[in-house]
Each structure stands twice: as C-alpha cells, then as structure tokens.
C-alpha cells in the first residue's frame, strides 16, 4: 500500500487508530487491574475501558451555559486528532517504518503537547473555577516535564547524530537503525540516567499520581474535565489512552527497540510487551506507592531530579562523542 491510501491505513488502522486505541485501552485495563491487585482488590475486568467508552457514548452531553460553546465542543476533538497523528508518527520496530519525515522526535514532542493544550482550551472555556485552577496547574506541569524531556531527546539525538555523522539526528528511523547495529541504547551506562528521567516524565505526561495535580480529585474535583460529560468526556478518555500508548511506545523506540522478532506478528507482540513493561514500572507501580505532590513540589522535582539526570546523560554523551 502506498500513497494516500497507505497514509489513511496508517492513520486509521495500524499503527495509529484502531491498533493504538486497542493497545491503549488494553494498557489502561491492565494498569487498573494490577493497581487494584497491589491494593488487594479484585479490580475491574481488563476490558473495562471499552465498556466505559460505550457507556459514555450513551450518556447525555451537558454543555455548561457559561461556557464558550464552540471551544468547549471542539477541544476534545482537537486533542484526539492531535494524538491520532502522533501515534501514526511512531514507528513499530521491525514492522512499520514511520511515515516519511514525520518520524522526527522534535515534531513528536510538539504534537505531544497538543492534548494538554486542548485540555487547557476546553477547561478554560468551561467557565468553572476548578477548570481555571486545573489549567494553570496543567500549564506548570507541561513546562516542568518538557524540560527534562527535551534534554533526553537532545541526548539521544546527539548519540544518533554521531553514528550518522551529523551534529544531531532526530529521526526515529535512524535511532532504531543505530540501536539495531550497536544494541539497545540502554546498554550504554551513560544513558541510564536519561532513561530514568524519561520514566519520570511519563506519569507527568499522562497525568497519573503523583503528578495528577491538574486533575486532583480531592482538591479541585477532576479540574479540567469537571464540566465534561458524555461523549466529550469519552474523547478525553480516548486521548488519554492513546497518549498512554504513544508515550510508552516512544520510550520503547528510544531506549529498547531491539530485539524485535523476525516475523511481524512476533515483533508487534514484543513491542506491546515492552510498552506494557514501561507503563507498569513508570505508572502503575509509582501511583501505587506514592502520594500526590503539590504543584510547586512537582515543579521543583522535575527541575531537579529528572532534569539533573538528563543533563548528566547529556554531558556524558557530549563528552563521549566529542572528546
């Protein structure tokens, strides 16, 4: 398949759209199940996210009278669309190469911010005071986790650039092919801090405890999504699940794309397994063992520990490459 039809297929079926959604929901289900088990609960069935989604489609959608109606309606759609494009951009090692120039890490980083922005737009158009607090918190959080994220990506870019003889190469294709030759980036001890920094950013991007501050249920009653109901809420949930998949896939591609299987099915299976592993250690385990931080604490945390770790890797890499 090629051309427009190919892109369409990538967007709707694999690796974007249906595949990403299915995997994202599966991750969300597993996450809830394991989380429950960690608390000695039975927990919901793994397919619970699908049921939730179907239910939300059956619910009435209320639009607050005080809201900016257009922005309120379009925000979840925009977030979802952005996320859909993002998952299409991420290659599945051994199966899917990524689309043309779209596999650029910097581009992905940009698109990753879209759902957060959509959430902010939606929340601030809802006219609820909790939404407003949520927005300001979401903004702070985005700034906080973007810093270490950018440094990590820069580090990897420099490493990949070194192999292909340029200053920095942000193409995921080359990052995968580099690791295919030299083994996983993670096997290089200087990259371990960067990996930890990246893991720290995952709960931040996904809005999971301890970084679910913008949606803190016990403080601002789910903040930004407070006013959403029905299918609009469903879209936010969908975006969240896609994000879960996207972030974990990104971690997999960046840090351990290899080994992948000889058959495409095996490759996909391994890929999902690695992604799941990423989610389990960075989201499930963390949210089961930590209390929510305060926004100022989270901000400080991100600017200290992950940023520090990422910088350490960056310095070591530059040192390694240029000296």
């Amino acid at each position: 398949m090629s051309g427009i039809m190919g892109y369409f297929y990538n967007l709707v079926v694999f690796p974007g759209g249906l595949f990403a959604l299915a995997v994202g929901m599966f991750f969300a289900g597993i996450d809830r199940k394991i989380y429950a088990r960690m608390q000695r609960r039975v927990g919901p069935p793994i397919y619970q996210p699908i049921i939730d989604l179907i239910k939300l489609m059956h619910k009435e959608t209320l639009i607050p009278r005080t809201s900016n109606q257009k922005a309120f309606r379009l925000a979840p759609l925009a977030g979802f669309a952005g996320m859909l494009v993002l998952v299409t951009c991420i290659p599945v090692p051994g199966v899917f190469q990524g689309i043309g120039q779209l596999d650029n890490l910097l581009l992905i980083l940009y698109i990753l911010a879209i759902p957060a922005i959509a959430l902010m737009v939606g929340a601030s158009s809802s006219g609820s005071p909790f939404g407003a607090v949520g927005v300001s918190r979401e903004m702070v959080m985005t700034i906080a986790y973007e810093v270490p994220l950018i440094i990590v990506i820069l580090t990897i870019g420099i490493k990949a650039g070194n192999a292909s003889g340029v200053l920095a190469d942000f193409s995921l294709k080359s990052i995968i092919s580099l690791q295919k030759e030299t083994g996983s980036i993670l096997s290089d001890i200087t990259m371990v801090p960067a990996f930890i920094a990246f893991l720290c950013c995952i709960p931040g991007t996904l809005g999971a405890v301890p970084f679910d501050i913008p949606e803190a249920e016990t403080e601002i009653a789910e903040g930004p999504i407070l006013e959403y109901s029905g299918i609009s809420l469903g879209l936010f949930k969908l975006t969240g699940w896609l994000k879960m998949f996207a972030v974990s896939a990104l971690a997999t591609v960046l840090f351990y794309p290899v080994p992948y299987g000889s058959h495409w099915l095996l490759s996909v299976f391994l890929f999902i397994l690695k992604c799941l592993f990423t989610i389990l250690i960075s989201v499930t385990l963390v949210r089961a063992t930590m209390a929510r931080m305060r926004i100022d604490q989270a901000y400080k945390f991100y600017l200290r520990i992950p940023t520090g770790l990422a910088l350490l890797s960056l310095v070591l890499t530059i040192f390694h490459v240029h000296v």
């Binding site: 429950a36 088990r37 960690m38 608390q39 000695r40 609960r41 039975v42 927990g43 385990l285 963390v286 089961a288 063992t289 930590m290």
Partner: peptide, 19 residues
C-alpha cells in the same frame, strides 16, 4: 516510596481480600 514497595509486593503475593 521504597518503604511502601514492600507492602505492595506483599499485597500482590497475598492476593485480593475482597469478599
């Protein structure tokens, strides 16, 4: 966090206590 990991692990091993 680390002190709680032990509890989490124990919980995983003990299994759910739900009636």
């Amino acid at each position: 966090m680390s002190s709680f990991l032990k509890i989490i692990l124990q919980n995983l091993i003990k299994g759910p206590s739900t009636e």
